[in-house]
Structures are given as structure tokens and as C-alpha cells.
Simulated assay, not measured.
Amino acid sequence: MSSQSTPKPPRIDGRRLRSERTKQLIIEAFLALVREDPKVPTAVLIAERAGCSVRSVFERFPDLNALHVAATDYALAQAAALAPARHVDGDRRTRVRSQVDTRARTCERGVALWRLLMNMQDESDELKARVRRAREVTMARLELMYKPELSTLPHEERRDLLVALEALTDIESWARMREQYGLPFEEASAVWTYAIDRLLPPTPTHG
């Protein structure tokens, strides 16, 4: 036999896996409850939905704020995974439509959690940081998708236009079109598409 022994596979800690699975179920339960009711769900409701005890909730999260932060991080990561930048090198029409469709679907999924974050952010610096980060990600996506048009503007005008585009495509803007004005998904998307196209400067031509 060789003097070199075959390395043993890493041992799987079943208890830890079960604990992580319970943690994930708690996060998913919180997000599901938020989508159903705009009020902050209690630990009892979260535990019931997750199929665990209230004690299990607080064994994995020191307090509800920690759960809110973890759920927000999970939702933001999920949104990023479901909404990659598409057609970045397409023509103007293609880029606008692609960005609007991606943003609209993100808003459609995330409006309930976003409203809860707006209500809770003043009570938590961590949540406030998540709100700021979400807006920075939106700004970065806008800058990426409309780089040709933005490149024609001086720095301050470019910044101001990005601010206007971010405000235009805010989640509450989407929710207002869908809820208050009753616009179908496609019509609300068309409103954004029209407005963005009007705001952007002419696309530079090359050659």
C-alpha cells in the first residue's frame, strides 16, 4: 500500500445544515408575510409560517432588526441574480426597453419589502445603508445602460440626469402607476420607456 493515505472527505455537520435551513425558512417566511401584509410581521407569525418555534427565530437572529437586515440582504441578492444587465451594447431602443423591463419586474417583486424598509430605516442604520446601496445599484445600472447618451453631457448635467432617471424609475413610481392609476404592466412599462427616451440626449453617431 502507498504510504500516502487517501484524504477523507470533509465531514458534513447535519445539525449545522438543519440550522441553516431553518434560518433560510425564517427569512423566506418573513418576506412572504411582508408581501401579504404591509405591517411588520411579529416573531410569532414568522415562526408559524416558517414551521418553527419563536425560540428558534431568536436562536438564529439576536433580534428582529437582525432578521430584517438578513432578509433585505437576501432579497437584494435575489433581485440582482434575477435581473442581470442585458443588451448593454444594443441600439438606443433596445437598451431602453431592456432596462425598463428589468427594472419594472424588479419593482413588481420588491414593492412590499421596499415600503417596509422606508418605514423602518430611521430605526436602523443598517437598513438605512441597504436603502442607500439599493439606490446606488440602480444608478450604476442606469449609467451602464445609457452610457452612450450620458457620455455627451458635462459632469454636472450627467449627474443631474442620472438623479432624475433614478427618481423616475423608483419603486414607488412603479407602484403608483400600477395601483393608483391602474395601468397594466405593459402600459406602465411603456410610460417609463417614453419618459426615459424623452429625457435622454441624442445618441452619438460614429463614423
Rank of each mutant, 00 (worst) to 15 (best):
R92E: 13
R93W: 07
T94W: 01
T94P: 10
R95K: 03
R95S: 05
V96I: 12
V96T: 03
R97D: 08
S98E: 10
S98V: 04
S98H: 02
Q99V: 09
Q99G: 15
Q99I: 09
Q99W: 11
V100D: 03
T102S: 11
R103P: 01
R103M: 05
R103C: 03
A104Q: 03
A104W: 13
R105W: 08
R105Y: 05
R105D: 13
R105H: 11
T106L: 10
T106K: 02
C107K: 00
R109H: 09
R109G: 04
G110I: 04
G110Q: 08
V111Y: 08
V111M: 06
A112I: 01
A112M: 05
L113R: 03
W114P: 00
W114N: 00
W114Q: 01
R115F: 07
R115Y: 11
L117F: 02
N119E: 10
N119V: 03
D122L: 01
E123Y: 09
D125E: 15
E126W: 09
E126K: 13
L127H: 02
L127I: 11
K128Y: 00
A129P: 12
R130E: 01
R132S: 05
R135H: 06
R135G: 11
R135A: 05
V137Q: 06
T138F: 01
M139Y: 02
A140R: 03
A140Y: 01
R141E: 05
L144S: 08
L144W: 05
M145L: 08
K147H: 15
P148G: 14
L150N: 03
L153M: 15
E156R: 12
E156C: 07
E156I: 12
L162I: 03
L165R: 00
L165Y: 02
L168G: 06
S173D: 07
A175Y: 07
R176S: 14
R176W: 05
R176Q: 09
M177Y: 01
R178H: 13
E179V: 12
E179F: 12
E179Q: 14
Y181A: 08
Y181E: 08
G182E: 14
A188K: 02
S189L: 02
T193P: 06
A195N: 10
I196N: 07
D197M: 04
R198K: 15
R198E: 15
L199F: 07
